[in-house]
Structure formats: structure tokens, C-alpha cells
Computed example of a mutant assay.
Amino acid sequence: MEYIAPHELIDETPWLFNREFDKGSPPPAYEGAPGNDSLHVWIWQGNPEGMFNNENPNVGQNERCGENFDPDAFKEQFAHLYED
């Protein structure tokens, strides 16, 4: 599960589950999207690296995004969130 706080909606980095969100920019697949702070939580799949670690060595990229993940369709679906 990924909790996301877009930079344009927050004044300071949020906290959840007694953890500060990671500060960051969108990954390359989401180029043009505004930056955001995020907190990743592995609640459905055990993670030997820790529940709050961004990456899980037991889960491949396609499993994280879905085999049919289409970054352009994702950006189009959520474009209204990034309009001025």
C-alpha cells in the first residue's frame, strides 16, 4: 500500500504509523507529475527488508504494478489531479 501526499497539497512532510513519509519526486514512468512525499507499507506480502521498506526482494516489478501496467494510461486517468 502506498500513501501519497502531493507537494502542492502539504506544507510539511506528513507522518503516519509513527513514520515520516519519504521525500521525493515522481519516478521516471510518471514524468511530468508533481513531486510528492510517500510512505510504502507492505501489508499483503511479507517483506524481509521490513514492513516500511520501499522495495521487497520477494516481489517482482510486474507483481508490484500488474503485468498490464501502462504508465501513459495511468497518467491519463489521473491527469485531472495535476491540472492547474
Rank of each mutant, 00 (worst) to 15 (best):
H80P: 15
F21N: 01
L81H: 05
N47W: 00
D72V: 04
N58K: 11
L39Y: 01
G46P: 02
G24F: 00
P14A: 04
G66D: 00
W44E: 11
E12A: 07
L16W: 09
P71A: 03
E12N: 06
D22N: 11
R19A: 06
D22C: 14
K23T: 15
A73G: 09
A79G: 14
D11Y: 03
K75S: 08
G32C: 02
P26T: 14
Y82F: 11
M51R: 15
G32R: 01
A29C: 10
N56G: 00
F78S: 05
D72F: 13
E20F: 03
S38M: 09
R64N: 12
T13A: 05
E76F: 15
D72E: 03
W44M: 15
G60M: 10
E76S: 12
H7N: 09
A73D: 07
N68D: 13
L39P: 12
I43F: 12
P57N: 00
E20V: 09
E63I: 02
G24H: 01
Y30A: 13
A29S: 13
E12K: 06
L16E: 12
P34A: 06
L81V: 05
D11C: 08
G60D: 04
H40P: 10
F78L: 14
P71H: 00
A29E: 07
D37P: 06
Y3I: 13
D84G: 04
